[in-house]
Design a protein around this nucleic acid. Structure first.
Lengths: 332, 332
DNA sequence: TCCGGCGATGATAGCGCTTGCAAGAGCATC
DNA sequence: GATGCTCTTGCAAGCGCTATCATCGCCGGA
């Protein structure tokens, strides 16, 4: 192993196999188009030289980078993690490389990340946040596919794959009402989606029960660490709610722990609803009633869209609704 | 916004600014080397054309991609998340793009990811897993910088930035002994690092107390969901331990919850030690005694190493010990 | 006045790959 | 035996940028 030796190039492989670089390139990208004999010769040459394709060069030449940017707010306690994990695995097995962009809890760095992604000439940008005015300008100019996930948005250019947050709010309201709860309190994170769920929930609750639900706001994201303060706020309410609706399983878990620590029983004294069906939800004591989002499905739809776009065909359905599932467990 | 228009290139900007492409390139990569006048002209031209550099082309030409691959086992319930988050932010602000590679809990896809990273000609690969025989061959041939984090490894080529897992085991043993615990039980994940901590812990405990610690093994990674089974196992032991040592705060949290659910008080009836100082550790009830790893520090050291290597200088210190800090809280 | 030196700029040869185009080979058809 | 296909292959022109080298003023010192 001569460490100083320059890495082998397509040309080296071609020379060794006694064919043209074009054939080697064809073999690598689509083995079937070369004859069996040359194919074998090339395969041998690749093995002997330890050739590793240079995808920078390949991307430049073909103007297809086979890279996809995944933009999310943050990593820890994130309700997106399961989706991102599924996304990353599906993308990898489809031959795409994932560029990770953390945009900050409030999307402070969203535009920077979009810009960086465009500079890398990614084939698509998958983001949990919508396009902003600035980013649409950028994207419009480059015609890069923009896929917004966890959302159904008709307005934004590009496609969106997700579910209706309004419907989630409505379903939760109906579910809790049917379970006989009387004084729900909703903890809404300071973001568009959570607000949509919150509004829909409150309206539907009013429609069902004729009474108003109470509400608290928290900084985005809804995380475990917020629970102490929120629980303390709850205790200060005129009437303690009988169920609290949260925007993430992490926060739900936190509230359950706080409630128990102060002697309340969950769900008897206080019930709690989560959101996201993170892996912890089914393992918590009590298990957490929550809303499941099918991350794998979102990932597959996203890849299908990327594939479709790369054929040059006209964009098809620009809004894909993957739905959600309310999972009734012990906590509410 | 003419969507069909080809994206502007360096040449377009140069033409518009009335300078050569070389000058534009210089301006972009190092604004100071061009005169103020041309600089201004170029800046205007860039703004007018909406130019976004093509980093694929740039990387090809300079053979510096300014991309760094970050390879981790998985995303959810991961003790690495805080480190990765820090890493990603530091890298982004240093102008690097992060390639995310999920290698699978047992590193099933480690080699694939290394190969993909090399094909992208990343400037460095940062991984939590060590090089394997196959990957060293690959890396040796390409002379790409390999940085192993969360580990101190003299053997592997490349550099490693982390801490001594043996020392962690020893410190935990001493700490628990000094707190007066008598029957520790250690839950060891099925991975090299956890084993190192486990062995060191057991030896040191024996040395301190003259008695053996009991041990259980779990599948890697140590996650929240394992807690039920482990706790059940604990109850079946001849003598219930008075403290259990885990490999992650998630698992520790799970055990605390199980213990409480079955009527035990933590730490009075059963104490629990975590590992990693994830954000939840300080917010749990009771707060979790754990070991803190300075993720930001690891990130900064990694970037320093990448910077150093890119100057072409000889590799400096190949093992950087960032240490760790045992944080005594309520759970043990 | 002349020359060395220096800062700023342009011309240009690649970086390693992809792909349209053309050409050669093999073969069935009439 | 000529014609027209299909299947493989090679040639060569880029893809958009960086970096080396040469050039051109211009200033200070001799």
């Amino acid at each position: 192993m001569n460490k100083a030796a320059k890495t082998a190039t397509l040309g080296d492989v071609a020379a060794r196999a006694g064919v043209s670089t074009a054939s080697v390139s064809r073999y690598i990208n689509n083995p079937d188009v070369v004859s069996a004999d040359t194919g074998q010769a090339i395969a041998d040459a690749i093995a002997e030289t330890g050739y590793i394709p240079n995808l920078l060069a390949g991307g430049l030449a073909s103007s297809k980078s086979r890279m996809v940017a995944v933009l999310i707010p943050h990593l820890s306690d994130s309700i997106f993690n399961d989706t991102i994990e599924a996304m990353s695995e599906e993308l990898a097995s489809a031959g795409f490389t994932v560029l990770l962009g953390l945009t900050g809890p409030k999307g402070e760095r969203h535009e920077d990340m979009v810009r960086a992604s465009l500079a890398r000439r990614v084939d698509a940008i998958i983001a949990t946040a919508p396009q902003t005015q600035n980013t649409s300008d950028l994207l419009g100019r480059s015609s890069t596919l923009f896929i917004q996930i966890w959302e159904l948005s008709e307005e934004t250019p590009g496609i969106s794959i997700g579910f209706s947050h309004e419907d989630v709010g409505i379903d939760i309201a109906r579910f809790l009402f049917s379970r006989g709860f009387a004084r729900p309190h909703i903890v809404t994170a300071d973001g568009v989606r959570a607000r949509k769920r919150g509004e829909a929930f409150k309206q539907e609750w009013l429609a069902q029960s004729g009474r108003e639900a109470t509400e608290t706001f928290v900084d985005i994201p809804s995380r475990f660490g917020h629970a102490r303060r929120i629980f303390a706020d709850l205790r200060r309410l005129d009437a303690m709610p009988d169920v609290v609706v949260t925007g993430s399983d992490y926060l739900a878990q936190g509230l359950i722990i706080e409630a128990q620590a102060s002697g309340l029983k969950v769900p008897e004294d206080l019930a709690v609803m989560g959101f996201g069906n993170s892996s912890l939800a089914g393992d918590m004591r009590p298990t957490i009633t929550t809303v499941d989002i099918d991350g794998k499905r979102i990932a597959r739809e996203a890849i299908a869209a990327i594939r479709h776009a790369s054929t040059g065909a006209e964009p098809q359905a620009s809004v894909v609704n993957v739905g959600f599932r309310l999972i009734a467990r012990e906590s509410a």
